[in-house]
Design a protein around this nucleic acid. Structure first.
Lengths: 288, 288
DNA sequence: GGGCGGCGATACCGCACGGGTATTGGTCGT
DNA sequence: ACGACCAATACCCGTGCGGTATCGCCGCCC
């Protein structure tokens, strides 16, 4: 009858505080971000360390760094807070009068598949309203984990699908996108090695989870519009699934890259999802 | 730089309270379980409902029931609390001097595979201490989700593996276990239909997640010791993977059931696990 | 080298909120 | 009709969270 006893758990407030400090690595800025004063924040972190019996931060008066345990907690706390946020959001939406499903997908990706899916699902008996969330790269996973979305289209290997249930929908080869008129634009195909060797046209750098960019020669890029423009301007090249060619206007040349990893479009949803609408949507998608 | 802003999140305390009330469906008992008085609990739930803007419980003065949104929150809150608990445990263990890995498995299951795995892993360079948690059926998943264990051996389709990363290790057929001397004990094989038709020897009922038992004719059973004893006594029969025959003493007859679903032993670990020890253990397991 | 500036920790205070006791109000049994 | 049961309300108290003021420590710069 009685399930696990959750006594003496850390409060979400403490986790939020720690995440802020761990991300800023600076009590003052973290306090500002949390809209509070610095001293209570310091105390809260100390108290958290006492309660866990663990040192989370190495502090010198000039800078603070995460201990091993601290970085574990940062990662774990983020997923725990995501779960709490998801609980809140899903509860609110379960109470909303109009049921509706939120489907997240990266803007511009899998457009054709998406429209077919929406049409096919709408024709199903018992279909509910589907609200689309078109978002930037990397975002759908977080939308799913925080309950802002109910289902998402992801693209392996670009997106990570760990922690979700998924069904593969479609696999396609990647192509290199070059500025029109580039010397290699007329080649019948390119190898990965050749693409990487294009020092005049580096591959762009996409932001990581935390918003920072990896080091490297390529330009920083936030979305596909930016990217296509950079390619037109002759400042970058890119690898992308071939279905994206439909999004490209003139000014681009497209060359298949057979040895680039294939991209699989998958439909993903949170495990334990008991929503009939999600199940129907997935079912429809796999029958396309 | 700044990641998602978790402002105004529900506190774990409120979630714990709600889970208690939702499980007990009775404020008085829930308060007792939480070691507090009933009125503050009532107020806390009301406040939670106000903050979410959602009615979670239908209350009549005699009984309370969950609304649709309430049952969503019950499920979500459990997983959120599990995540918080996991954050706490994993942080504590990350700070412990001796690293160590906790491996959970159902007592008695896959014994042979388990001992081979432990031996093989111990021979690896860089192996750390492996602490075994032998537990009852259904428990390993929860141990993994709450961070009490780092890796687990699970058995599909008995255990659900959603939300974990897994690798298949071994697949085997199931056999029927009957009391020695039973009329069917000498058959070369049985069908599922025949096993289900044994009204004199019903299949036992295992507890669900929440500890309650499904309805049905069979005896309630908590572990394999109970079960084997019930079979010896001629009060039940059972289906189990054939490797379990090693656990059985005399007094049992074993008959293959070819059309029963095959059981796959899988090794499972939480997604995002960055522990080298877990990775090594999984790697070793797949090479067995 | 001494003074200044930046930053985290400490000291102290006030109030909001969580929790306790006593009581009410409503509904179901008998 | 009356009593039992149970959630909600009323009221009170204490803890603890958050705020302001200040200290202590260290690096930097003139």
């Amino acid at each position: 009858m009685v399930s696990a006893g959750y006594d003496e758990l850390v409060e979400t407030r403490e986790l939020r505080y720690f995440v802020a400090v761990a991300e800023e690595l600076h009590f003052g800025r973290a306090a500002e971000r949390l809209a509070m004063a610095q001293p209570p924040l310091s105390r809260a972190i100390q108290q958290l360390e006492r309660r866990l019996g663990v040192v989370l931060l190495h502090r010198t008066t000039r800078a603070i760094t995460l201990t091993e345990a601290g970085s574990v907690l940062l990662r774990e706390a983020r997923t725990a807070l995501d779960a709490v946020e998801a609980a809140e959001r899903r509860t609110r939406r379960a109470a909303a009068d109009q049921p509706g499903v939120v489907l997240a997908a990266k803007a511009g990706a899998s457009t054709e598949l998406l429209s077919k899916l929406l049409d096919a699902y709408a024709a199903e008996p018992g279909a509910v309203a589907v609200e689309m969330m078109l978002c930037g790269p990397g975002e759908p996973e977080s939308l799913l984990r925080t309950g802002r979305a109910d289902v998402a289209l992801l693209h392996r290997p670009y997106d990570t699908t760990v922690g979700f249930d998924t069904e593969d929908l479609h696999t396609e080869q990647q192509v290199a996108v070059l500025p029109a008129g580039h010397p290699l634009a007329n080649r019948s195909h390119l190898s990965m090695a050749e693409v990487n060797a294009l020092t005049d046209l580096p591959l762009p750098r996409w932001p990581r989870r935390d918003g920072s960019y990896p080091d490297g020669p390529g330009p920083q890029v936030r979305d596909h519009t930016q990217l296509t423009q950079l390619i037109t301007l002759g400042r970058a090249c890119a690898l992308m699934p071939e279905s994206l060619r439909a999004q490209l206007g003139d000014g681009h040349a497209i060359v298949p890259v057979p040895d680039a990893p294939a991209v699989t479009t998958v439909i993903a949803w949170p495990p334990h999802s008991r929503s009939k609408a999600v199940a129907d949507l997935v079912h429809t998608a796999t029958r396309l």
